[in-house]
Every structure is written in C-alpha cells, then in structure tokens.
Design a protein around this nucleic acid. Structure first.
Length: 491
RNA sequence: GGCGCGUUAGUCUAGUGGUCAGGACGCCGCCCUCUCAAGGCGGAAUCACGGGUUCGAGUCCCGUACGCGCUACCA
C-alpha cells in the first residue's frame, strides 16, 4: 500500500462549542503531519447527531483550535473544492451512494422497527448468543416491501455483510484484523434519512480525498465496517492511524467531573497555548532521539511521526502539565508575559487597561518564576497594586525583644534619601543592617512584613523599587505607627 | 458474554535479543539564598503474572490477569 498522492487529513469535530482535549491532540497530530508533508488540513463539521449539536457552536470549536495555533485550509468557514463541509449539508450525497449500493445489491431496505430490533437483541442476549441482526429483511420481495411500506413502516438501509477475515495496516499499531462473520448486516442510513457515522465518514473521506484517516483508538473497531463500505463502493482505502486514548487519573475516560476536558477551560485557567501544544504532543508521542522536553509547534512539525506514537493509553497528568506550563512562562519575554497576565489582573480588579506597560513589565520579571499558571498572577502580584493588611502581631513575633519602631524609623530615613534603583536600595539597606547590628532574619523579615504584609513575597529590594518610594515609606510608617499604638495599648 | 486494542516506577516515556533498564513530572534530602520560587546536586521507586523460543528476553511466541474501547436507527 503506497500512497504518493498529496497528504489530505481532516479533523471532524462535533459543534459542541469547545474543543475536547482529545480532539485537540488529534488535531495537533494532524496538523503536524500535514505541515511536515506539505499537505492539506481540512475541517469537517460532524453535525449529524442532532442531539449533540449545541446551537451551531462551530465558532467555539474554531476558537479553541486557533488558540492552539492550528489552522486549516478547507472547511465550512473557508470553503474549498469539496464543499459543503458540514455533514448536515451533505445528506443528498449519502442518499445518492446508498442508492448506488442498493441497486448494486450490496445493501437493502430493512423494515424492522427499533422496538423489534431491541426485542431480538434481548432474546439473543438471554439465549447467550451474540446480539446481531438476523438478516430478516435481506431478501424481501418487491411486493413484501411495498406491503411493509404501506403499513407505515419507514425503512433503514443496511449493508450486506459477508463473513470473512479483513484487516488493515494501522500506522501506529501495525496489522489489525477481525472476522466479519461476527458482525451482521449493519445500518448505514437511518429511517430519518440521516446517515450513520461509519457510513457518512467513508463517503466524506473518499469524496474529500482524505489520504490519512486519523482518530482516537476507540474508533479502531469502527474501521472494520468502514472497510466493508469502501469495498462495496469499490473505493480504495486510505491509511489509518489510531492514537492512544487519554484518561483521567483514575483511568476513566476524560470527563468534566474529574477535571477540565476542554481546551477553553485550560485557557481560562492560565495555561499557555505553547505549553498545551507541547504537553498534548508528548501525551502519546515522543521524539525518541532526545531528552529535550520543550518543543515549539514548529519544532514538533519537524519531528513528528506516526511511527513514534504510543499505542497504550495515557493519563492526563495535570502535575506535569503544571510543570511544563511554568517552564513556558519562564521562557517568555517579560513584556510578552506582562501582556498575557494583564487580562487576569484586570479581571481581578488590580490593574486598569491603561496601566503603564513598562512598569508592568518590570513588575512581571519579579513574579515570572513564581507562577505556574497565569491565573495565579493576581495573588502573586497583589502586593504591587494593593496596600497590604496590617500585621503587627506577626511582626512582633519576628522582632522578639528588638525595637521595631527604631528599626523602621531608621529604614524610612535611609529610603527617603537613597537613589531609587534596586542596586542602591539593596546597598543602603544592607549597610543599615550592619549599623543596626540586627540579624538577617529579623531585619529582612520585619522589612518584608512592613513592605509586603507577608512573610512570602517576591525579592525584597526589587519589590521596594517597583512599589515606589512614596508607597513604601507610607507602608513602613504605617507599620511603625501600628507597632507604637499597639505597644502603648499594652503598656 | 463476544470482538478489538493495550500493559516499562504513582504519572508521561526511551528501549525493537546482550544497557548497572535511560530521561522527565511528582516525592524525599542537601546546596544556593533577604522569604518564596527558580536553579544545582543527590536519593527512593519500574519491565503485570506464568509458560515457552534462545547461549541470552522488557524486547519474539502462547496463555492468564488487569485496563480501555466497541458490541445502537450515538459519534
């Protein structure tokens, strides 16, 4: 099976308004391979399941994929030589080929009702037989069909299945086969005129000249009936690649209850698209020739291959994703990071749209390696925007017998005169420590508490610089006053 | 139940007959240090089980167990 035709791969999401992470990863792999081979990436909206359609929420799907940095060249939004790209708009096509199958004798009308079929299944199950269609309507005469029609029954269309061993060479798993004599004739067109997934997929993939059918492992067994349809239509089969399934920590299928399942949710939590792409790529694939763990989309395009995809299921480990996201945050240029955290700061009510970007960038360098996710920025950066809560009790515990009031007065005096740069502030403060003869722990912790209101903060000297002389002095004096009044209250 | 896929530390993985089974996350310890991070160094922890094949098996074959998927007029 060689294929020298230009690569064409499709992603076929349901319009649910967001992108499931599994779909996102498949789309990513598709994109990587397409870019690598100079092929074409196609968006096809799979909206034949009316129950699953959320008010034509295609935009959300596009948005999620675009956020990852993925784009396509044919689709409902782009047009293309094989339009329409929505399955709901291709119904006539499915009907047309179903009729072709009918006249060729590869398919037939089945008048059994859903209830009858269910009853048959129940019977077979009870008798410990494998539930499968009996073939009851397979050889109905024309008059029998008319009579059934006249009685108000609307038929489905079934494909005739001949028992034999069939298989295909999966790009990530190798040869996979099964015996179709276990299968039974299956429905390709429902009585409401809507095609069944396995059938619509084959029609579209062939008509759209898809060369590589890529999807999650749960579709492996769907490939068999699809193979039968290709054969019945006399069509060549594409390559198939089935990726591993992504699971929750408890090995269950990814679900909302057990963590975020959609790309958009991760964006809101402050994960970087760079990190998401990187993480998703490594969940079920690895470069194999390097220990490097950070890859950009472009680098992945270069290295990706189906052969290096893993066949076993992968658990979505949020801890590792956190680590990778933090790495990516640290890798960003500060001004870039500043722009990305701004929406989170604004949402938290800390910053305005007109915040000085130079100051924000400087501030960002202080919190850059203290964030795992962007949504942590407000908490870490609050000290630069809001006056800290009073903490005299904590300070007193740190001071012990040291005279805090005197120390803070001395600090304020030094800071009111020092040249306002991080280096000069540090120099002045350190030499004052020597003059006062205070321990590092007491001196700096008291200072930290005074300036930031917390025992944990970004680096002190730089923070002092960023917060600004006026506000720093006010905070120090504030605390000194609090210590004084509190003391006098006790006395 | 039947069929399909899978199984290297808690997790993601490297490994395609001969390696002390490598890397990473997480965890623990130490160092650095104005706190917290980041960073550096070190540590504990793995071939699901049983049979074969072979001089030699994580690697090949068979079986068992376990997990996942499909078994719909869902996709």
């Amino acid at each position: 099976m060689t294929n020298t035709k230009p690569v064409r791969i499709r992603i076929a999401p349901s319009p649910t308004g967001d992108v499931h992470v599994g779909t996102g990863r498949t789309a990513l792999y598709d994109y990587l391979f397409v870019k690598q081979t100079g092929g074409t990436f196609i968006m096809r909206i799979d909206d034949t399941d009316l129950a699953r359609n959320t008010a034509h929420a295609e935009a959300g799907v596009y948005h999620g994929l675009h956020w990852l940095g993925l784009d396509w060249t044919e689709g409902p939004d782009k047009g293309g030589p094989h339009a329409p790209y929505r399955q709901s708009e291709r119904l006539a096509l499915y009907q047309q080929y179903a009729e072709q199958l009918l006249t060729a004798g590869h398919a037939y009308y089945c008048y059994c009702t859903a209830e009858e079929l269910e009853a048959l299944r129940a019977l077979q199950t009870a008798a410990k037989e494998d539930p499968r269609y009996s073939g009851k309507c397979r050889d109905l005469s024309a008059s029998a069909r008319e009579a059934l029609s006249a009685s108000g029954r609307i038929p489905t269309i079934r494909l005739k299945v001949k028992g034999k061993v069939i298989g295909f060479d999966d790009l990530v798993r190798g040869w996979i086969e099964t015996d179709t004599s276990l299968m039974g004739d299956f429905i390709i067109m429902k009585s409401n005129g809507i095609p069944v997934y396995n059938y619509a997929t084959v029609i579209d993939d062939n008509l759209m000249e898809i060369t590589h059918v890529t999807r999650a492992a749960e579709h492996i067994v769907n490939t068999f009936p699809q193979l039968l349809i290709y054969a019945a239509l006399g069509w060549p089969t594409p390559f198939f690649a089935h990726f591993s399934t992504m699971l929750n920590e408890d090995k269950s299928k990814l679900s909302k209850r057990k963590g975020a399942t959609f790309i958009g949710q991760y964006a809101e939590m402050g994960y970087l698209p760079e990190a998401m792409v990187n993480f998703l790529a490594f969940l079920g694939w690895s470069p194999g020739d390097s220990d490097e763990e950070m890859y950009t989309l472009d680098e992945l395009v270069e290295k990706f291959s189906f052969a290096r995809c893993t066949a076993s299921n992968a658990i979505f480990d949020i801890k590792k994703f956190d680590w990778l996201n933090a790495k990516w945050i640290r890798k960003l240029a500060p001004e870039d990071l500043a722009k990305r955290i701004l929406p989170f700061l604004r949402k938290a009510g800390l910053a305005d749209a007109d915040v000085d970007i130079n100051w924000l960038t400087r501030m960002t360098t202080l919190i850059q390696e203290r964030m795992v996710r962007l949504d942590e920025a407000p908490a870490v950066a609050a000290v630069f925007f809001q006056e800290p809560a009073a903490v005299p009790e904590e300070v007193r515990a740190v001071l012990g017998s040291v005279d805090g009031g005197a120390m803070l007065s001395a600090v304020a005096s030094v800071l009111s005169k020092v040249n306002w740069t991080e280096a000069d502030i540090e120099g002045a403060l350190r030499s004052l420590q020597g003059e006062l003869g205070l321990s590092t722990k007491v001196y700096f912790m008291t200072l930290r508490l005074a300036v930031t209101g917390s025992k944990v903060s970004p680096p002190l000297f730089a923070s002092i610089e960023v917060i600004g002389r006026e506000r720093v002095l006010r905070r120090i004096e504030n605390l000194r006053d609090l210590l004084g009044t509190a003391l006098s209250d006790i006395l």
